[in-house]
Design a protein around this nucleic acid. Structure first.
Length: 460
RNA sequence: GGCGGCGUAGCCAAGUGGUAAGGCAGCGCUCUGCAAAAGCGCUAUUCAUCGGUUCAAAUCCGGUCGCCGCCUCCA
């Protein structure tokens, strides 16, 4: 498989450092508020990459950090007059709940910044010892002059970095304006930790260097994040990590493009700012959100609209209907080798599309082609055929993650009873009564499908 | 000022040299008590635009128009 490496600005064949294994680090949330759907575009793309690596038989170790100490979390806690941990706990829980709703597979580790202060301090101490960092008025800064490769990831020339806006109240005494803070000296009213270089708290960038190193080692395979992370965050991570360890930090950098909403950058003032909760409360299904967010190419701007979300829901319904039809196949007999061959071919096409820089649109095309090929033959399929096709769909869905298991619950008996009543009404040609029962069930999210072999039902 | 991206049917979206995938929506028909689902058929001589290279271009090169991102906290 190959994909676009931000570092080299080229499509590259992926070769893991260790045969059959992948170390994956993805920048997680800063937990000061509910994440918005733009955040989830990135997280779901990361989930797709992870699922596809697993699909190819690779064993992935996935680390996603949680930034629970920074300017914004501190500000929020101070505004609400509650302890920092209370604020971060709330949004960490919300984040995990959203990820579950969106069917993202959990990471192996979710390290929190506040639980890795010692590791960050040790890293800063090493940078100080080697002269890559310096102390100034209780804070510690990284000296970018000491890292000639600085700017390579972002394709920026060190000398041409626009200066001025970067100077904020925190960072007044730096040797060079472009130098970035590793450790912020204590300020009144802010959480702080004692350190050899003075009491204070970590800067943002050092967190990811320290935690990725701890869980994945000094050199690992893939680092992901949103495009906004390229500069300065990831650039700074490279500088810190490579200067401290003297080895290449990451082999492949993968960045997900942002989404816009109704053609404009999402912002609260424009009223086009959505959290997952906003969409669910409007009645949209989380799987439709997932489908939409993963369905277009990750390096292209995605224009999110409610109309697009509805279309995604409809497209997904086509896949669900296919699965539904397969589950209701009742033909007896042997499996058709031609069908098996078609399934193999379609799966290979699906895989090839994803292996080419994660072309999800192309992969979906391969899936729908197969569905269109099998649908006309549904009535001629045997149970063995249907089982093969369902196994195929399950394999596809192990990557896409857009289908939920067909859940049958205790309510089933009641539903079956209602259906029996409707059947009785139909036999008596009391269609008004029959339609009334169907409409009632519909309101409960149960759709009825009359087929030659009886009534089938499903949840919508 | 520097770096970079995008413009394909009503909508979404693949395709980066060999003659326009796929999805949604729409229309007609089949099936059905009616629906739903499914099926069949129809729906871009054309890829912002102008010019060039080539036997061949949506794909390569150049110009023009339009839209957007980053260089600063941000997925």
């Amino acid at each position: 498989m190959r994909f676009y490496n931000t570092l080299t600005r080229r499509l590259e064949e992926f070769r893991p450092i260790a045969e059959g294994r992948v170390g994956l680090y993805t920048c997680g949330p800063t937990v000061y508020d509910f994440p918005h759907i733009g955040n989830y575009r990135s997280y779901l793309f990361e989930d797709l990459v992870k699922r596809f690596l697993a699909f190819l038989g690779l064993r992935v170790t996935h680390v996603m950090n949680i930034t629970d100490i920074d300017d914004k979390t501190i500000r929020k806690a101070s505004e609400l007059q509650v302890p920092l941990a209370e604020v971060t706990r709330k949004y960490i829980d919300a984040f995990h709940a959203d990820l579950r709703a969106l069917n993202a597979l959990p990471a192996d580790h979710y390290p929190r910044a506040t639980e890795h202060i010692a590791e960050m301090q040790a890293l800063i101490a090493r940078l100080l010892e080697q002269g890559f960092a310096y102390e100034k008025d209780g804070s510690v800064y990284f000296r970018i002059e000491r890292f000639p490769e600085y700017g390579r990831l972002a394709n920026l020339d060190k000398g041409s970095l626009k200066i001025g806006a970067a100077v904020d109240a925190d960072e007044y005494e730096k040797e060079a304006v472009q130098d970035f803070v590793l450790w912020k000296g204590k300020k009144p009213g802010e959480p702080s930790w004692p350190a050899p270089f003075g009491e204070g708290r970590p800067g943002w960038h050092i967190e990811c260097s320290a935690m990725s190193m701890k869980y994945l080692g000094p050199h690992f395979d893939i680092h992901m994040g949103g495009v906004d992370n390229i500069f300065p965050h990831h650039e700074n991570e490279i500088a810190q990590s490579q200067c401290a360890n003297g080895v290449t930090f990451v082999n492949y950098w993968l960045h997900c493009q942002h989404l816009i909403v109704d053609g404009q950058k999402m912002s609260k003032s424009l009223g086009n700012f959505y959290t997952l909760g906003d969409l669910l409360s409007k009645g949209y299904a989380p799987m439709a959100v997932r489908y939409l967010l993963i369905s277009s190419h990750y390096r292209k701007l995605l224009n999110f609209t409610l109309e697009g979300l509805e279309m995604a829901g409809q497209a997904l319904a086509r896949v669900k209907n296919f699965a539904f039809s397969l589950r209701n196949v009742e033909g007896e007999g042997d499996a058709d080798p031609e069908l098996a061959a078609a399934l193999d071919k379609a799966l290979a096409a699906f895989r090839d599309q994803l292996a080419d820089d994660f072309n999800v649109s192309g992969a979906l095309g391969a899936m729908f082609d197969l569905i269109a090929e099998v649908n006309p033959r549904l009535s001629a399929l045997t149970r063995a055929d249907a089982a093969a096709a369902l196994a195929w769909l399950e394999r596809i869905n192990s990557v896409l993650g857009v289908l939920e298991p067909d859940e049958r619950t205790a309510l089933d008996a009641e539903i079956e009873a209602r259906i029996a009543l409707r059947e009785k009404a139909r036999r008596e040609k009391d269609y008004a009564r029959a339609d009334e029962i169907r409409a009632e069930l519909r309101r409960q999210g149960i759709a009825l499908i009359d087929t030659p072999s009886g009534v089938k039902w499903k949840r919508e």
